[in-house]
Amino acid sequence: MSKILLIAEHDGATLNPSTAKCVACAAQISGAEIDVAVFAEEGAAVAAQAAELQSVSKVLQLDNPANANALAATLAPQVSALADGYSHVFGPSTTFGKDLMPRVAALLGVNQISDIMEVLGSHKFKRPIYAGNAIVTVEASPDLPVVATVRTASYQAIEAGNSAAVEAASPDADLPTHTRFLEIQAGKSDRPDLQTAAKVVSGGRALASAENFDLIFKLADALGAGAGASRAAVDAGYVPNEMQVGQTGKIIAPELYIAIGISGAIQHLTGIKDAGTIVAINKDEEAPIFEVADIGLVGDLFDIVPQLTEAVSSQ
């Protein structure tokens, strides 16, 4: 039987939705017993949220001042000590999980399965490669622990309504002091979080300045949407990096994605493959974005977007 250890992502107070998505993936392995590990300085609040997730058997609360910030070098030896007796160790394919899980895998002496998008069996999964241009079915050895990250855009968060037991635990591990957290600069935004927003409006290079990005923000606000950007827009300094959508930014799956002045490079499209409806607004009718758009509108964004914002606001 599969026994899955799942590493929770959180900010010290709130469980990140990526964890509920990981649980949804893990729960597809039939008969799996799923334990969620919360590494924190004071993890009680987060552990309580994890315990509410359906399909979770128990929550392990690993309080330690060293766990105040998620540092892979500090967490990995604890996770690998805790992994004893588990057949699988899962984490989300967010920057948190991508940083941590391969370090855990190496300590356990196994390769990692990155970005699970579909479960075919306890050791058989599908994952994207080549920026999503190919999907490969992979199989891990049944004799070794499976260390994997879950492509969160492929899963809906599992529902709450459970009340799993929470247990304190303290794995025996030597924690290094060679890696020290300094600070985190988080973009402050009142808009819905890109990775969980039901609607997202993104702007590209065509916006041509930081000031013009207001057009994107106004439309996003009228729709109650999150705001994103192409890499070109981020590189040009119009918006901060955490807004980037794509292969090297965020992989998202909103119900509605509106791409404005974005050409549709393959690296951008990778980030929106699972969007429900894709709308493209671009003045070039040959732009590749129209090949994937469900609804396309050819024209100048500087004309169209204010009109659209107006029309949406008056709904």
């Binding site: 390769n111 999503g132 241009n133 999907i135 490969v136 894709i278 129209f290 994937v292 029309a311």
Partner: peptide, 23 residues
């Protein structure tokens, strides 16, 4: 021990979309 690659397939194609003329 490598993770075995059993089979490769192209990603699912999205259904063809529509073009609209105006807002």
């Amino acid at each position: 021990v490598p993770v075995a690659n059993l089979q490769f397939e192209p990603p699912q194609q999205r259904a063809k979309g529509i073009m609209v003329d105006d807002v």
